[in-house]
Structure formats: structure tokens, C-alpha cells
Design a protein around this nucleic acid. Structure first.
Lengths: 342, 342
DNA sequence: GTTCTGCATGTAATCGATTACACAGCCCCC
DNA sequence: GGGGGCTGTGTAATCGATTACATGCAGAAC
């Protein structure tokens, strides 16, 4: 085996600077409580020894790991991977590491055991995907208590800090945009319904249709799970229906892409024969053919906000009282996949 | 503040089972060294108290965090996010957590300080992106010694375990495929050149051209960094050149997508006017218009292999001797973005 | 009956950093 | 010149799990 050179400890630094370990610790965390001269000797000794703090020892003593856990339904999804990007970046700025859990599918008790009771992580960022409100309650409860910030499609009932999107209202605006273009026959690819909760993008779609006194035809409502595959499946089902809609609102961009490419194989061209609006504005949306009209979600902003909220809570900097809820606005990005009905 | 109920420690379990903490520890890690009866009392006590091991204490004592660090150039890139997905999954199966570092841009010494000298992570998965061979040497050296598995475009000179792709040979095959379709005027969008190292996909392209006695025209060689933006830039540069190539080999799919969509705006249709082959086979490649011909990289397999290799090294299960190198094969996936020259 | 062997369990040291408390030295004031 | 206050530093306990070593006890061997 390789002989690993011993990593220097705080004792080694103390010996080098001819002070006690306590003083070294103070220089590192409360420099103002140490005299100028000593402070300089210690700083010098730290440099000479190449000392780095041992996080395991620090965590044990302080009961804080300076690490957060992010639980995502699917890292492979470009929406989430962009959020993760921002989270990792923001956490690093504030001196925190990020552990990743993927496809945890509602097994909140395992997260609790593996990461929190075992004190590997101090707080949790929880994204959509299989955690129903009951489990959320467990996490937020005093005895399984985990500092927590969520970002969900639905507005969670449990009393937790959250960064949310204006999903319902954005879905209304997306649908209203199609209606404004003259479309009357409009379908919808539904996003996953995690909980018993109503799906806000579906509700928004229905609201806009109702307000315009348009019929929501059940055969033009397609189930989806945010994957391209379900967009493809929606296209196949659509082609079998008695009549095609002239426009479709897809609950995310990936399903819209699957839909458009599959319809094209059957000779149905977007936007010539059918207008499609997506949701998210993932990176490829602007380069797809046709360039996708979509509701943009500020992914990076979401990532930074959830991270800052969580770390504020961890460091006691969050305002006391009711947990903070932030609601962000989605923007309509008009490109080429939608057009006015002739 | 919320009154957090005290998390039970090994002492609490010991008290409950009327044994010493040492015995509880033995039941948990070496059950065969404890008598049947005691073992059962302890197991029962663990269940009753809801005990979970404190990883910070365990890490401190054992000098092992059961955590690995993955350093990626860009999580937002779908190629890497799919690899990350597999890594997180495989690591979880073997009881390891995964910390993420992103866009570390060659700052290997910061990784070393923040994660290894401070014993937050036991091993490192290092992917392409700015770590040049010199820094790699530092990490692999006995005194900065970090258990390490890399996955790079280039074959690293330093003596480290690696999971590599047949980039050079795959680039040759991609180019040869275009040549086989009758193309003579072929351009290339070059991937990022991290190091002083030669870029294997570029070399493969040049080799194939040379073998077919075709000229590599410098004005058809475009610099890129794997982002869609540089694909767009390549298209703009290409449109300014004196003559268009009839085919392009792009070092990845995202740049190919940027290229195709930008050329289309100028009336240059793929594959009618120009054939394009990509690299990676990211998820959207099969749904793009035109569906992308590409060299598929087994992203999930890469993720699982690097993770298993690293954990084998950490647990001393890796065969001694020279570090293991695995080379995986890319497959040509023929779709619609390439066609025979009329 | 004494000594030996081996198994099961307990005792106590250890990993490295933090911090309450103690104390030494200094200045100031009456 | 003695008490009070203040500053700077050291001592030692602590966080929770692991493990070398010690010990106690049962059964075997003589």
C-alpha cells in the first residue's frame, strides 16, 4: 500500500506555533479574541503545516455537517440538472457541500435515516416527485425534525418553507395564448400527479378553457410523466382519436418534443397543422425545430433561492415565525411552434 | 425554536439492552462475535430506540466517510447529468453518499483541501474538464494521495484507474461513415482541448480523412466547448466561408443541434444540403428534427463502472498492481441527419 | 483439585475540534 | 498596596463510535 503522509491536526499547528490547540481553534473561528501577535504566529503555522480542518471531528462536536441533501425525482431531466447546478454553486459559495439523492420515490423515512438521524446532512432540499403531503408532515414534525425547503408543483399544505412557481396561473396564460391565436380545439398533455393533490397546470388549463367557454375533450387529455416517451405516447393516442386538436399545451418541454417529432412522422407538421406550447424552456427548446414556444421557469433562480433559504434556516438567519414562501413568475416565451389559426 | 428530541446514541441502546456500548458496536459490525442471546437483546433495543449510527463519529474514528466526491465540468450538460444519475444510484447500492463539485475548472488543490484533507470524502471521481495531467499527477502522488478514478477524453498519462471511451477510434468510424456515404468535403466542430494533450476526436477525424486521401480544410475546422452556443457560432462561421462542406462531424450532439438549427435559418437544410453526425446520443438526439445520427456513449455504464472501480479501491477489493483501465466502445447509431451524397 | 484454553463481555483509550471555566498578568483606582 | 475589572491563554471535558486489552467464567485435561 501507499504510505499516506499523516494529515496535520490542530495539535500539530499548536505545537508549531507554541500555543495550545484551543488558541488555534480560536484564531480560526473567533480571530478577534486572540492577540495580534499570537494570531500571526498561528496563521503562519497553519500555512507551514498545510493544516485543513477535519470536518468529521468538527461535525461531531458541533452537531453540524455543513452539508445539505438535495432529493430530486430525476437528475437526468434537464430541468432538474440545471437547478442542481445552481444549488451546488450557491452552496459552495456559502461553504456547504451538497449530497445528492435521486429517484427517492417517496421513501422519506430512508432519507431521514440515512442522512439526518445519522447526521450526514443538516438540511434537505426536497423537489417534486412522490413525496406526498403525509410524508412531508412527518419530515416537518418536531420529532423527525429536519430543516427543510421544498419546491413543488403544488402548494404544500404542510407548514414548510417553499420556493414555488405560479404554475396554475402560468398554465392559464399559456392556454389563453393559444386561445388568443384563434384556437378552439385544444388538447393537453398532463404532468405527473404525485399526490391526491390537484395538478395545478391541469387546473390552469381547465380554467382558461372554461373562461373562454371552450370544451375540454377527454380524448384530448393525455397522461404524462414529463418524459419524452410519454410525449410520444400522447402523439400515438392523438393520432387514433376521431379528430385532431389544432393546438396542444404540454405540461413540459420534453413531452412537447416527443409529441412534435412523432406527429411529424405521421405527416402532421408543427406549427403548420398543429400549434404546441411547452413549459420550462429547457436549453434545447430554443434550438428545436420548430423552436419551442414555452413558459420559462427561472431554473437557476429557483436553485439559488432554495439553497439560500435553507442555509438561512440552518444558520438561524431566517426570520422567525411562519416559514417563508416565495412564488416566482413564469414568462411566456414566444417562438415558432405556435401560430394563429388561419 | 423547535425542541428536537434527542437522537439516540449507542449508549442509549446499551443501557436499554443492559450491555456495554462495545457490545452494541460488535453486534452491528461483527455479529458473529456476540452470543445469540445478547445479539437478540441488542437488536431488539436498536429497534425500540430507533437508533441510527452517527456517521460523523464513525468517520472520525475510522477515518472513512463512506462518501465519494464527483467532480464534473458541467452538470447542466445532459451527458454528465446522466452519468451522475448512474453514479448516485450505484453508490447508494453500495452504501455510499455522493457529494457533487461542479465547474471546478482545474482547481484540484481546492478539491483536495475542501474534501479530502478535511476528510469529507474518501475517494474522487474525476471527469473531463480542465484538470491537466500535471494536476492529476499531484492528486495521484503519494503525499496528496486520493483514491481516484477518472473518465477522460484523453488517455491520461498518470498512473490512475480509468474508465475511457474509444474516442479516437470512434471518431474515425464516424468520419469514415460520412466518407462511405460519398462525402468528400467534410468539416469538424472540435471539442474543448483541455490540456496540451491532443484531442482524440480531432485526431480520429484527421486520421480518417488522411486515410481516404481527403483534405482537411482549416476553414472547416471550428472550435467548440460542447455547448449549443459554440454549435451556433460554428454555423455562423461556416456560412461566411467560401464554400460549404457537404458533411460535418460534430464532437458532440449539442453542438450538432446548434449547428443544424442555425444553418436552417440560412436556408441550409440538414440532411438535404448537409449531413451532420454527432457524438454521445443524448436523450433528445432521437427526437430532434432531423433525428440525429451519432456515436452512442454508454453513459449509464460509464457511471456504474467508475463508481464500482472507486469503491473497490476504497474497500481494498481492487486487484493490486497497476490501476485498472477499462475502455468502452461507442456505437454508430444511424438516423436521419446523414444521407448519401446524390 | 488445580491449571489451562477459549469464549463472551466490559473497560478505557482514541479519533480531532470546540468551548466553559480557570487563572495569570496587567492596569486602574481609591 | 490591595481589590476590581479586563484581556489573553491554557486545561480539561465533551461529542459518539470503535477496538486493543483485560477480565471473568465454563469446561477440559491432568
Amino acid at each position: 500500500m501507499v504510505t499516506t503522509r499523516k494529515v496535520p491536526t490542530i495539535q500539530d499547528v499548536a505545537r508549531q506555533a507554541k500555543v495550545s490547540a484551543a488558541t488555534v481553534s480560536r484564531v480560526l473561528s473567533n480571530p478577534e479574541r486572540v492577540s495580534e501577535a499570537t494570531r500571526e504566529r498561528v496563521t503562519q503555522a497553519v500555512r507551514e503545516t498545510g493544516y485543513t480542518i477535519n470536518q468529521a471531528a468538527r461535525s461531531l462536536r458541533l452537531r453540524a455537517a455543513r452539508t445539505i441533501l438535495i432529493a430530486l425525482p430525476d437528475i437526468g431531466n434537464p430541468f432538474y440538472s440545471n437547478v442542481l447546478d445552481a444549488v451546488v454553486d450557491e452552496a459552495a459559495l456559502r461553504g456547504y457541500g451538497v449530497l445528492v439523492a435521486n429517484r427517492f420515490a417517496g421513501d422519506a423515512s430512508r432519507l431521514l435515516n440515512d442522512y439526518f438521524l445519522s447526521s450526514r446532512a443538516d438540511g434537505l432540499l426536497l423537489f417534486d416527485g412522490g413525496v406526498d403531503t403525509a410524508l412531508l408532515q412527518v419530515l416537518a414534525m418536531p420529532d423527525g425534525h429536519v430543516p427543510l425547503v421544498v419546491s413543488f408543483d403544488e402548494v404544500p399544505k404542510a407548514d414548510v418553507a417553499a420556493v414555488l412557481m405560479d404554475n396554475l396561473e402560468a398554465a392559464e396564460r399559456a392556454t389563453a395564448y393559444l386561445i388568443g391565436l384563434g384556437h378552439r380545439k385544444i388538447g393537453h398533455i398532463i404532468g405527473p400527479s404525485r399526490n391526491a393533490e390537484p395538478n395545478p397546470r391541469l387546473i390552469g388549463f381547465q380554467n382558461a378553457m372554461r373562461r373562454a367557454k371552450l370544451e375540454v375533450r377527454p380524448e384530448w387529455l393525455f397522461p404524462g410523466d414529463y418524459s419524452m416517451e410519454t410525449g410520444i405516447a400522447a402523439a400515438q393516442a392523438m393520432l387514433k382519436s376521431s379528430e385532431l386538436p389544432t393546438a396542444v399545451f404540454s405540461a413540459n418541454d420534453e413531452m412537447a418534443i416527443g409529441l412534435i417529432s412523432t406527429l411529424r412522422d405521421a405527416g402532421v407538421e408543427c406549427p403548420r397543422d398543429i400549434s404546441v406550447i411547452g413549459f420550462d424552456d429547457i436549453t434545447v427548446a430554443s434550438q428545436f425545430y420548430p423552436r419551442l414556444t414555452t413558459m420559462r421557469q427561472p431554473r437557476e433562480q429557483i436553485g439559488r433561492l432554495v439553497t439560500d433559504s435553507l442555509i438561512d434556516i440552518l444558520e438561524g438567519a431566517a426570520a422567525p415565525g411562519a416559514p417563508r414562501r416565495i412564488i416566482l413568475r413564469s414568462d411566456l416565451i414566444i417562438r415558432e411552434s405556435t401560430r394563429a389559426l388561419p
